[in-house]
Every structure is written in structure tokens, then in C-alpha cells.
């Protein structure tokens, strides 16, 4: 059996209160480990809250911050993904998601796509990450990390899957909007996300793990609805909308093999062709100015 237990911490972080949020993370980690979780996933900016504006620089942590080390120390025998504002040595600020394992910080993904439109203003306060890569993990298969808007760009899940990821993890602070009655589950944002997550799982024949926060920052309410989707696109676990809590899912890693043997979509990907077309498109766009 290749079963793994995943705990999704659908929390409501307190805006700008790093110490309080750290304490909650430690508590959730301890309980999830006691419940046999192999992987504990926390939402985007779970350590700081989302609508930080000028607070971003005040709650930022360098990767060698002792508070991160202390949190990592609580991951003996398990993996955790936590998210915070990272201050780089050159003082750029990133929205970061870090993989902590067996007491150490293993990898940091910096959010690549920073929405700066509509109700979002991330580019004003943060620098954009440049790298997406699959990372080995103690779970036995590589993980692919992404933060919220990273999943509104098709290339991210594709690149992660091509790089070997078998579990794609997206951590989010997605603000709920559009309560029109025609929406499935009454919320437009939930409807769109659910379609994306299932599509990515099915097309990359990978597990997709989505952890979205709840609670309120300023005007916006984050809708939760965290979930785990199997490599066939079917729902394995779905957390309720808006309720705070830690939700457990169990996955069987053998499902990836079964699905990929049955439906060898990744085998048939054509990365060289994609590269040639991208190079042509880039040349054309450069010529056009």
C-alpha cells in the first residue's frame, strides 16, 4: 500500500499577527502529526494574513529566521507546507510557500504570478518568483508547489508535471465573490476553482491538493473549500466552504501509476515542439514590439 494522509489546515490567519499565527501553525502541526498526517498543508500567507499592504515588510522573514527554524523543528517524521512573506538577502519581498520536512526547510517556492488587477494589488508590494520545479519529498514522490494565481496560468501545472511532480499542491488566499444564484454552490469563485483543479488533475494525471484559507481581511471573505482531487479528476476529499478546520484526506500513490498507464497523456507531451513554438511566438512578439 502506498497510502499517505494529507491534512489540509483551512485556517483564518489573523492579519499582521505573526506570533499568533505561528502558535496556531505549531498547534495544528502537532495535532495533525498525532493523527498520522504525512503532509500538512497551510494556506497562502497563513503565517501573516493576506491584505498586508505596507505591513508586508514588517512581517517578512528571511529564510534563516529562527521562527521558521522553530516551526521546521516540529516536522520530524512528516512534511509541511507553510506560507509567509520571504525577505530575500537583497530585500525583495516574495510570497513564499516552503516545504518543511524532518526538521529542516527543504525548498521554497516563490509565487510566480502576482495578480494586480480588480481587487488584487500584489505586484505593488511583492517581487515575482522566477522558478517552478518539482521537488523530491519524504512522501516518496516529487511535489509541485504553487501559490494561488500560479494556477490561473496553464503552464505552471504542465511544467510541474513534466518535471516529475505527482502531487501538485496549490496554497491559496482566494477571496470569494459573485453570489449569483446560478453558480454551483452559490459562489462564482468556487465554481471556477473547482473546474480548474479537476482539469489540471485529469490533464496532468496527478493528485491536486488545494488548501484555501477562510476568514475575513478588510472587505474580502476567503471561501475555503479546500480539496484533494485524484489523478483521474475525481474528488477524494472536499472541505466545506467558509468553515475553519483541519480536514484529512487519504490518497493512494498507486493511483498515479494506474492512471498514467491507462491514460499516458504525460508520455505523449511534446516539450520540444512546445519549446520551438514558444521560441517562434517570442520572436514574433519581439518583432512586433
Amino acid at each position: 500500500m502506498q497510502r499517505r494522509r494529507i491534512a489540509l489546515a483551512q485556517l483564518a490567519p489573523r492579519l499582521g499577527r505573526l506570533d499568533e499565527n505561528l502558535a496556531v501553525h505549531r498547534d495544528v502541526l502537532a495535532h495533525a502529526r498525532a493523527d498520522g498526517a504525512d503532509l500538512v498543508v497551510f494556506p497562502e500567507l497563513g503565517l501573516t494574513g493576506y491584505q498586508l499592504q505596507d505591513l508586508s515588510a514588517e512581517v517578512a522573514m528571511a529564510l534563516d529566521d529562527p521562527r521558521l527554524a522553530a516551526l521546521a523543528a516540529e516536522t520530524t517524521g512528516c512534511s509541511a507546507i507553510v506560507s509567509f512573506v520571504e525577505e530575500a538577502p537583497d530585500h525583495r519581498l516574495f510570497i513564499a510557500a516552503a516545504l518543511l520536512e524532518d526538521g529542516a526547510l527543504r525548498h521554497v517556492h516563490r509565487k510566480i504570478y502576482l495578480p494586480t488587477y480588480g481587487l488584487f494589488d500584489e505586484r505593488r508590494f511583492f517581487a515575482a518568483g522566477q522558478v517552478t520545479r518539482a521537488i523530491p519529498s519524504r512522501l516518496g514522490v516529487p511535489l509541485g508547489l504553487a501559490v494561488c494565481e500560479d494556477f490561473w496560468h496553464l503552464t505552471v501545472p504542465l511544467l510541474l508535471a513534466l518535471d516529475g511532480a505527482q502531487i501538485l499542491v496549490n496554497v491559496s488566499s482566494s477571496p470569494g465573490r459573485d453570489v449569483a444564484a446560478v453558480n454551483e454552490v452559490g459562489l462564482g469563485t468556487a465554481t471556477s476553482w473547482r473546474a480548474l483543479l479537476r482539469t489540471y488533475a485529469a490533464l496532468t494525471t496527478s493528485f491536486v491538493v488545494f488548501c484555501n484559507r477562510v476568514g475575513v481581511d478588510e472587505s474580502v471573505t476567503f471561501w475555503g473549500g479546500s480539496e484533494v482531487i485524484g489523478p483521474d479528476g475525481e474528488t477524494i476529499m472536499q472541505a466545506p466552504l467558509h468553515d475553519e478546520g483541519v480536514f484529512m484526506a487519504e490518497i493512494d500513490l498507486a493511483d498515479v501509476r494506474r492512471e498514467r498507464v491507462t491514460l499516458p497523456l504525460l508520455r505523449d507531451e511534446r516539450p520540444e515542439m512546445v519549446r520551438r513554438q514558444l521560441e517562434r511566438i517570442l520572436r514574433t512578439r519581439a518583432d512586433e514590439g
Partner: peptide, 8 residues
């Protein structure tokens, strides 16, 4: 203009 009142 019909909304899901429970969600709202």
C-alpha cells in the same frame, strides 16, 4: 439579480 442568500 437572484443570489444564493445562504452563501451571501
Amino acid at each position: 439579480l437572484a443570489i444564493d442568500t445562504a452563501v451571501a
